[in-house]
């Protein structure tokens, strides 16, 4: 039972980590909060669902949805954020809120307001032991998240572009002067961040068997809180915060059977942790 609950928490935490990662990277480099990242989560879910319904191939749906949403991220930064970068931070923030609302209404217009089912059959089965059942969607979520985060870690720690990202996050102006093409860094950043959000969206759609236009709402709020909790733009901190909140909300909902719904538990936990550690779990400032 406890293992089952821990795994459940890990699954939820993984999804949070993937959703918040794009916005964390963007905040780390540009110091803007990209709320529309949660819109990418919904776009990814819809794209994945429609590709699955039309092809029946889950691998293809993932690949197509990730590519499409990643491209959308590229377009968003190029034509929405780059032009307003030299304005005060409130301008890109409001632009991102506007984009987020636009995405939701666009999805409502194109796909309709109702909740759609996302029942996908995966090419592998559940793992069953006497006490424990891990269903295939859980396996997919944990493995895919681990793989994507490992890829990001490798990119940031060991490649030239990763070094350029880290330098840019620490001092954008000087990184520019050293020859780092900031526009390229930002473009890759959005591409990757939106692809991650799309992956999370598809997996959540499958996990809860539902895809709907406003499915990004709650993740958007949680994403913002997780970015703060993770230490504002620190990818490792965001993963730690995401897993922690995933575990807390699952364990409290599962064991104590709190009278609040689990999203509320997550936010109460976030508020308490932020009251204790307002600088976040891993702040940049030493």
């Amino acid at each position: 039972m406890i293992v089952q609950q821990l795994l459940n928490g890990l699954v939820i935490g993984s999804v949070y980590a993937l959703t918040a990662m794009g916005a964390t990277l963007v905040y780390g480099i540009l110091r803007i909060l990209d709320l529309a990242n949660a819109g990418a989560y919904a776009i990814g879910a819809y794209a994945g669902l429609f590709l699955y319904l039309s092809t029946g191939n889950i691998l293809l749906s993932f690949a197509g949805a990730i590519a499409l949403t990643g491209f959308f991220g590229f377009v968003v930064q190029r034509y929405l954020y780059i032009p307003v970068l030299d304005r005060p931070p409130i301008v890109p923030l409001i632009a991102s809120i506007g984009l987020f609302i636009f995405i939701q209404d666009l999805l409502r217009l194109v796909a309709g307001p109702r909740i759609r089912e996302f029942q996908a059959s995966l090419p592998f089965g559940a793992i069953k032991t006497e006490t424990l059942t891990i269903n295939p969607t859980w396996i997919l979520i944990i493995v895919l998240t681990a793989a994507l985060l490992a890829f990001l870690w490798y990119l940031l720690a060991y490649t030239k572009i990763g070094l350029a990202w880290r330098a840019t996050a620490q001092d954008l102006e000087i990184a520019k002067a050293m020859g780092v093409n900031i526009n390229q860094v930002v473009a890759y950043n959005f591409l990757l961040g939106y692809a991650f959000a799309a992956t999370a969206g598809i997996m959540v759609g499958m996990l809860y068997n539902s895809v709907f236009p406003t499915m990004g709402d709650v993740p958007a709020y949680k994403m913002l809180a997780l970015i703060v909790l993770g230490g504002l733009g620190n990818p490792v901190g965001t993963v730690a915060a995401a897993v922690m909140i995933g575990l807390i909300e699952t364990l409290i909902a599962g064991y104590i059977g709190f009278f609040l719904p689990r999203d509320a538990i997550a936010f109460v936990a976030l508020i308490i942790i932020l009251l204790i550690k307002p600088e976040g779990l891993m702040s940049r400032k030493a």
Binding site: L163, R166, Q170, D171, I174, A175, M178, R284
Partner: peptide
Amino acid sequence: FPDLTVEENLKIG
């Protein structure tokens, strides 16, 4: 770059 090592700073240079 405060959170890069000395060598990473040189690499960015």
